[in-house]
Each structure stands twice: as C-alpha cells, then as structure tokens.
Nucleic acid binder design. Structure first.
Lengths: 146, 146
DNA sequence: GACACCTACTCTCCAATGGGAACTAGGCAC
DNA sequence: GTGCCTAGTTCCCATTGGAGAGTAGGTGTC
C-alpha cells in the first residue's frame, strides 16, 4: 500500500490521541491549567499577590466578581464569567449569591481548589528562581539569529 | 467626571496589567506553561509516558522530530515546530542537526528544561490523585443544571 | 534522466477561540 | 422618568491553531 505514509500515520495517531485524551487524568488536568485565566483566578483566590512582595496577605480568601475583575486586570468579563463557571463545575470554587441591594456574588476556593493552588506554588517558586536564566537564554538566542 | 466608570476603570487596569506582565516572572512563566504543547513536549522529552504505566522508561532522553510527532499524537507540524523553537529559544532544550542521509534532527532537554519537568511532576501527581473527584463534581453540577 | 520517496520543515487557507464594547436584569436614588 | 449599581450576556471582529499541500536536498529505482 503506497498511500499509508506520514500523513496517514498522523491521522491515525490523532484518533488514538483523541480516544486517549478522553480518559487520561493528566491530559484532563492539562486542559484545565493550560488556561491563563484559570491559573490567575486560582492565584487570586489563593491569596497570591500580583507579584512577590505585593499588597497581599498570602491568605486564601473569598472575593467578589468585581474584585476579581480588578485583580486579574486585563481579563474580559466574558472570560472571567466563563472561567469561574468552569471552575465551579469542577468543584474548585463555590459561587455564593447574596441578595443585597445591588446583588453581590462571592467566589471562594474549596479544599480541592486550595490543594491545586498549593501545587501551583511550586511553579511560582520555579519561575522566580529561573526567569533570569530564561531571559538570558532568549537574549543569546536572538543575538545569534539577529 | 461622569465618564470614568466601570469601562474606563477596566481599560486603565488593563494598561497596568500589560506593563506589569512585561516584568513579572510568574506571568512570563505562565505564558510558557499555559500552552498544551509546551507541556506535552516537556513531558515527552522528560520521559513521562502518555499515561502512568505506559510504555516508557521514565528516563529523560533525546528524541527526533518525527518521534515527537508520533508521541504527541494530534499535534500539527506547525505547532510542533513552533513549540520546539520557542523552547529552544528559552534554553529548555537543544536542537541538533545530524547530516545523515535524510537529515536527522534530535531534541534534548537541557538542565533548565529538566528542572521545569521536575516541577511538573507535582501536577501530574495531583491530577492522578484528584481527577476522580473533579469528574464526580462535574457530574453533580451537570445533573443539577440539567 | 524521470519519477518516487525520505525527513523536517514552510505556506496557505479555514474554523474556532478570545477580546472589546455594547446591551440586559432587577432594584434603589433623585 | 432618568441614572447608576453589580453581574452578567450578546454580538462582532482580530488572532490563533489545525488540515493539508508544497518545499529543499538528497537517495533509490527503472
């Protein structure tokens, strides 16, 4: 069969991949954390400041929709809502509506969300420890390519 | 000034955010790992199998372009090349061209890439330990909303 | 020499994703 | 009535990513 070449092998591989994506836990987690806003919401509710030494306590706490929008500066309302809904669905956070005068909605990490946030602290630490090195590598690479 | 309302406050916030994005190490790392293919390339070269108990040794090793394409089944050639280039630029991996008959290109993690891969092991472990819980939460949420 | 095939890309087109801004609901204030 | 508040939702458009074909440089076959 002369036509089962690279292209077809790739198509076959993709089908295997899709089937396996549906059941592999690390791939499912990947889909969750490979989203910039998910990570930032987790960080905000987990008490991480915008940067080390920022104006944060380091304590996880509940936040209102508008407070999150301010903290995750640059997020669109659409993506913030979408992200919060998906995290609520996964049981990472709780959404509480309080019928005050303008209605108030607060979000808070659950134990599950908190435990994921704990894992993310490792990344944060790595970033702070190695970002200078990465920046130097980028500079060197760009100078070489010029 | 009656016009400095929510919309303008958001615009202002976005500018602050952009300025701060440019220098904050954890946000720069976020941009790097918040990419599905980056994570998968790191995992593949780091020796993680497609899933726990898979056909992998667990030892980091170098791989050829075509081998990576097979392992990260479902990746497009465009994204694989793009991802490898960006990781090379950041000094996470090395690209080696060997002028064999059809030319051979191998990729291998550097110490830096290896250390990031080590941090990612924490995520993998978390995923494996909590994915059932997440799946149960999703089921419950969907049943409620129905 | 003409044609096929190899790897590791590169290019072109198209569908899906994410962002911006305007609009909505429900209620109080003036 | 008009305006403003929060927490969204809707619509439109620019950017991103995927599919698939094309390329470079070389070997093998007839």
């Amino acid at each position: 069969m002369p036509t089962m070449s690279a292209a077809e092998k790739r198509t076959q591989a993709k089908m295997d991949y899709d089937a396996f994506l549906a059941e592999c836990p690390s791939r499912q987690l990947l889909d969750r954390i490979s989203d910039k806003w998910v990570t930032l919401v987790l960080a905000a509710l987990g008490g991480d400041g915008p940067h080390p030494g920022g104006d944060c306590t380091g304590e996880p706490r509940s936040m209102r929709y508008s407070e999150l929008a301010r903290r995750l500066a640059g997020v669109s309302q659409k993506m913030l809502t979408q992200t919060l809904r998906s995290l609520e669905r996964d049981g990472m956070l709780t959404r509480t509506v309080t019928p005050t005068v303008p209605v108030t909605v607060t979000y808070e990490l659950t134990d599950l969300g908190l435990s994921l946030h704990g894992v993310m602290a490792g990344f944060k630490a790595w970033a702070e420890g190695h970002m200078d090195e990465v920046r130097a590598n980028r500079g060197a690479y760009d100078a070489r390519a010029e």
